[in-house]
Write a protein that binds this DNA or RNA. Structure first.
Length: 110
DNA sequence: CTCATGACTAGCT
DNA sequence: TAGCTAGCCATGA
C-alpha cells in the first residue's frame, strides 16, 4: 500500500506551521515533498474540511493573501492572522528580507 | 483529446 | 511596488 497521499502530506505541512508564523504555497509544497506543486496546495486547502487547520498561515510567494481583496476568504484570513499577532497591511504580510537560510520555509513575523 | 480555470511562481519591465 | 507574460499542474466540461 502507498504511503501518505499527497493531500495528507500537504495538510501535515500546513499543520506544522507554528502560530504567529506563515509560509508560502510553494514552500509548503516543497516541505510536503512535492516541489513545484503550489497549485495543488491551493486545491487541497480549498477542499479541506478540517476547521482546526491553520490554512490562514499560507500565503502567496510575495507575501500577499491569495484571495481577491474584499472577498469573504480574504477578510477571514486577515482576521485570523491579526488574531495571532501577524501584521497585515493592504492584504499583504510584512515579510523579512527573503534570506536564503529560510529553508525552514517559515518567515518570522513581528 | 482540447480548452478553460484557479487560494501559484519566477522573470522581466 | 506594480503590471505583464509564460510556465506549471490538477480538474472538469
Amino acid at each position: 500500500m502507498p504511503e501518505l497521499s499527497a493531500a495528507e502530506r500537504i495538510l501535515a505541512a500546513v499543520r506544522a506551521i507554528p502560530r504567529g508564523q506563515v509560509a508560502g504555497y510553494g514552500h509548503v509544497a516543497r516541505r510536503a515533498g512535492l516541489p513545484g506543486r503550489a497549485r495543488l496546495v491551493a486545491r487541497v486547502l480549498a477542499g479541506n474540511g478540517d476547521p482546526a487547520l491553520p490554512w490562514h498561515r499560507v500565503l502567496r510567494a510575495d507575501g500577499r493573501i491569495a484571495f481577491p481583496p474584499g472577498s469573504p476568504g480574504f477578510r477571514e484570513q486577515c482576521a485570523r492572522l491579526r488574531r495571532e499577532g501577524v501584521k497585515v497591511v493592504n492584504g499583504r504580510v510584512r515579510m523579512p528580507r527573503a534570506g536564503e537560510d529560510l529553508d525552514a520555509a517559515l518567515w518570522r513575523i513581528g
